[in-house]
Amino acid sequence: MARRKDGVLDDLLGIAKMLPWWSDVGIALITYFWLHNVASNEVALAVQPGKMGEFLGSQMSKTFATIGQYLLPFVFSLGAVLSFFDRKKREHLLSETKQRGKQNVLLDMSWREFEMLVGEVFRQRGFTVVEIGGNGPDGGVDLVLKKNGETHLVQCKQWKAYKVGVEVVRELYGVMAAKGAVSGYVVTSGVYTNEAKAFANGRNIELIDGSKLTQMIQGVKLSNPITTNIVNVAKNEVTCPKCGSAMVKRNARRGANNAGQAFFGCS
């Protein structure tokens, strides 16, 4: 699903959020200096017959530039801030899921978190990821991947109650042909029907179920993983950062300086 856009500025902000933050900063600077230069130019009064259209066009350009020289840089600067924190949120979500290491963690997510997680997994695998949501005209496609000049499409199905059927896979295959995508992925937190698996067999479609997605997450090498233990405040438990199991309090038996000292160990 994707939220409804309310106007041009909302569309621009949505585009800015999808771009890397440093790209937004560059666009903000370029648009400011370009539009500021246009806004600073004087518009000559139309004194010759037949020049009124040219005069009005120049005047409209100057008016747009006068407003846009501040508005567009503001939008892209805001987009840079949102993009930066959005990226950090995705990295944190992937790192936390990797540490918990259990498939049922995927089932506890919202559909939006699941889509963000899948996008970050592919981003860590070297793809450029554009999130478009599944509510548009592209047949339920949630992510568009780019790598080596080739396009790949992804549908995310965070379904808890039932299997992903062949209709979803057929739909993606049709969009792949229309968009010229070289491959497609259907990613779910659950499983697939036998009909869906049979249809994908022999086609450039990979079906990634919850178990395989968990393996892909565990295979990601994070540059800034979360190193602190996860504490369950309600149960007063410390969770192992590697496997997600509860840690228990123990006493060291060896070591001249450590004997008798309490520590937490994985159960």
Rank of each mutant, 00 (worst) to 15 (best):
R3M: 14
L13G: 05
A16L: 02
M18H: 11
L19E: 03
W22D: 15
W34G: 04
H36W: 00
N37C: 11
N37H: 13
V38N: 05
V38L: 09
L45F: 09
L45V: 10
A46I: 08
A46H: 01
A46G: 04
P49F: 12
M52E: 15
G53H: 09
E54N: 14
F55N: 04
G57W: 11
S61R: 07
F64R: 07
G68D: 08
Y70C: 08
L71N: 04
F74H: 06
V75T: 06
L82Q: 08
R90F: 01
L94A: 01
L94I: 08
E96S: 14
Q99D: 09
R100N: 14
R100P: 05
K102W: 12
Q103F: 01
Q103D: 11
L106C: 02
M109E: 06
M109P: 03
R112D: 11
R112V: 13
E113A: 12
V118R: 00
E120V: 03
V121C: 06
F122M: 05
G126F: 07
T128L: 09
V129P: 01
E131M: 11
I132R: 00
G134N: 10
G139I: 00
K147W: 08
T151K: 09
H152A: 12
K163S: 12
K163C: 01
V164K: 04
E167N: 14
Y173S: 11
A177G: 10
A181L: 01
V191Q: 07
T193P: 04
E195M: 07
E195H: 09
A198I: 04
F199D: 03
F199M: 05
A200H: 04
G202T: 06
N204P: 09
E206N: 05
M216G: 00
I217A: 01
K221H: 07
S223I: 11
P225Y: 00
T228N: 13
I230Q: 06
V231K: 14
V238E: 08
C240I: 06
C240W: 01
P241D: 02
K242D: 12
V248D: 07
R250P: 02
N258K: 12
A259C: 15
G260K: 06
